[in-house]
Design a protein around this nucleic acid. Structure first.
Lengths: 181, 181
DNA sequence: GCCTTCATGTAAGAAGTTACATGATTTC
DNA sequence: GAAATCATGTAACTTCTTACATGAAGGC
């Protein structure tokens, strides 16, 4: 039962997404671009095979529903074993921190000189990208938590606020660069 | 010449590492755990094959040197074409931001309730990890930039400072959680 | 002498992306 | 009627990790 060397994080994320509601593969795909997209991403070509594997393992099961007259969709839900596996994963302590790959920072590193002419434009492009992302996150915050519905979905609130703070920090770092470059 | 759809970032990072000094595969491997390890990582099993490919492409070449009496090492250096490829990559504008995968944040998200008993310990473990990392980064800063040698290696300084700020932000977010959890 | 670091590679497999493939439903 | 979205899958390929494999040099 002490399954120490588990990996395949994606499967646990899928389980987590199913813990309260049942969802289709399409719903799960969509959640990766809205809810948790800031902290994990997966394409449908990775999700559908994973759903098959989880079904074979007995961690999830599904019912086929008909939309309209023909379109079939598979509505997945957690089984008891699936719920146990999810809890085990959550309780498993994390001993390492992830590497956050950042191509922009690397390019900056390889430029080396403070006086390089390319720097101002590169930094500005990066500022624009992060600004746009920050605005998008702020919009989402207003849309998802219009009043004080925070406590009802604290996890989602936390994740959003963390993403916002992260962007703010990145932007303030970029802006400190413009003063020097 | 307008090679829009280039990928394989690792190869460009290797080129970047060779722009000032020649290096062995081992040196490159080591740099991924010291200099730029915060923003990209690669194992030697990925580096050595990549060095072969770059050599075949003519972007780098090497000389074999003997250490002691027998140990052969390959000292790689940038060719002119390699230097051009590096510049092209640096000048290529970045249009997307990376996804920073974070398993801890996801677990938090799936826990949802603020009152969950597991939270305090999970958060504390995470604080410890980030604290240790921050200390390590601070040590490196002192070791690499003891006096005012910043301007001579501004890229390295920037990358280090960014990593430090990122950790500080993460820690302050984690500490804000302990007050609520 | 022993342990750590230096030094270089390959093989197998897991994880992730891009492209191929299809078709129904809804909205405008 | 057209376009966007819903809906599900597979194939090929790239990227990354873990394990296999070997051996020299240097420090203590």
């Amino acid at each position: 039962m002490f399954n120490i060397a588990q990996k395949n994080t994606l499967q646990y994320i899928i389980l987590g997404m199913l813990q309260d509601d049942e969802k289709t593969g399409y719903d799960i795909k969509t959640a990766f671009t809205t809810e948790i997209g800031e902290f994990w991403q997966a394409k449908h070509s990775q999700i559908y095979p994973e759903l098959s594997k989880l079904t074979k393992k007995g961690w999830i099961d599904f019912q086929t529903e008909i939309v309209g007259t023909k379109l079939e969709k598979k509505v997945y839900s957690l089984t008891k074993t699936g719920r146990m596996a999810l809890l085990e994963w959550i309780n498993e302590p994390l001993t390492e921190l992830p590497t956050n790959k950042d191509e922009f920072v690397l390019k900056l590193y390889f430029i080396r000189s403070i006086d390089d002419q390319r720097l101002p434009e590169m930094i500005q492009q990066q500022i624009d990208l992060h600004q746009k992302k920050l605005e998008h996150l702020e919009d989402r915050k207003i849309a998802v938590f219009p009043d004080k519905k925070i406590k009802e979905n604290y996890g989602h609130y936390l994740i959003l606020m963390h993403a916002i703070h992260r962007e703010e920090e990145y932007l303030s770092w970029l802006e400190s660069l413009t003063k020097r470059a």
